[in-house]
Amino acid sequence: MSATLLTLSSLSKRFGGLVAVNEVSFQVAAGEIVGLLGPNGSGKTTVLNMISGSLRPTAGSIDLAGARLSGLAAHRIAALGVARTFQLVRILPSLTVGENVLAALAFRSKPLWGREARDRADALLEEVGLAGRGEERAADLTYIDQKRMELARALGAEPRLLLLDEWLAGLNPAELRLGINLIAALREKGMTILLVEHVMEAVRALCGRAVVMNAGVRIAEGATADVLADAEVVRAYLGGADD
């Protein structure tokens, strides 16, 4: 197995009296895609938010290749090589599609600007299936295209770790196929991805390993097929969140 990229140790987050994440630990190796699973409210997105710096952990630590992420502001974490998409897609509505991607290029740790940046933005848009649409207003895009643009923006940062928060949710079967292929292509390029996902078809197709959370606690971890067969996991999903 290749080197560990991301390490979470006893990570906890409390909102007032509510413990959203309770002593969660796991690792992600460089080049692998790990699925972070669990029913709604189990704390998956909170974990993602702590990694990206949206939230500060109450306790525990997060390390990325030897650098301590926990406690840093979001922009510092971004500079260390973490990029993400958001559960509810977050576009920059007053900017064009191209500028949305340009923004990622202009403020990453090795910034691009000018002609070079525009070319790179065009290439990224092509990569996610938005070739030639850089001049359109981001707010005018359809939902799926906004998701594509958000992915292009995340990739523009050239992250060492990509966090995808239900990036495949809300897509129709044909779009889902495209989406899975897109992520699979990223895996071929050696990108490390931690994804929160409810779409089990995608998890099975993409993730070599999976971590399952329930009520803020990690309840299973291992090869995806084994984890999904685990009795406790099945119980956590009882009622069939497996959509």
Binding site: S52, A74, H75, A83, L92, R108, A157
Partner: peptide, 9 residues
């Protein structure tokens, strides 16, 4: 939020 996640201080 997006700004911060893109690395803008």
């Amino acid at each position: 939020v997006v700004a911060a996640h893109l690395g803008i201080n």
